[in-house]
């Protein structure tokens, strides 16, 4: 079970926007039910990152997080989306 933190400016608008896209893509790639996504604001990313596998962020994040940060701004622009999804997928292990 992979746990992701999805972070944006407010934890509302941009993160909600890409959450659906990420969920649809991950389900399509066969990971349905094998991950969880928690939304949060940029200022909460560091504290929330504990115990999660990766922080997917639509905003610039320079704070230290307990796990790797994936820059997902491209999902808002429809640019480089495949690479971003590949990056997210790389956190799943064969046991998942």
């Amino acid at each position: 079970m992979r746990k992701f933190v999805l972070c944006c400016g407010s934890g509302i608008v941009t993160s909600t926007h890409i959450r659906k896209k990420i969920e649809e893509e991950l389900d399509k790639r066969g990971y349905k039910g094998k991950y969880s996504i928690t939304q949060c604001r940029a200022s909460e990313a560091a504290t929330m990152s504990d115990g999660h596998d990766a922080v997917i962020s639509t905003t610039v994040l320079k704070t230290k997080c307990a796990c790797p940060i994936i820059v997902a701004t491209g999902l808002l622009m429809n640019r480089g989306t495949k690479e971003i999804y590949d990056q997210i997928e790389s956190f799943f292990t064969p046991e998942d």
Binding site: G9, T14, S57, T59, V60
Partner: peptide, 8 residues
């Protein structure tokens, strides 16, 4: 884009 991308 939404300026939220620069808020962090």
């Amino acid at each position: 884009l939404d300026s939220a991308v620069g808020v962090g």
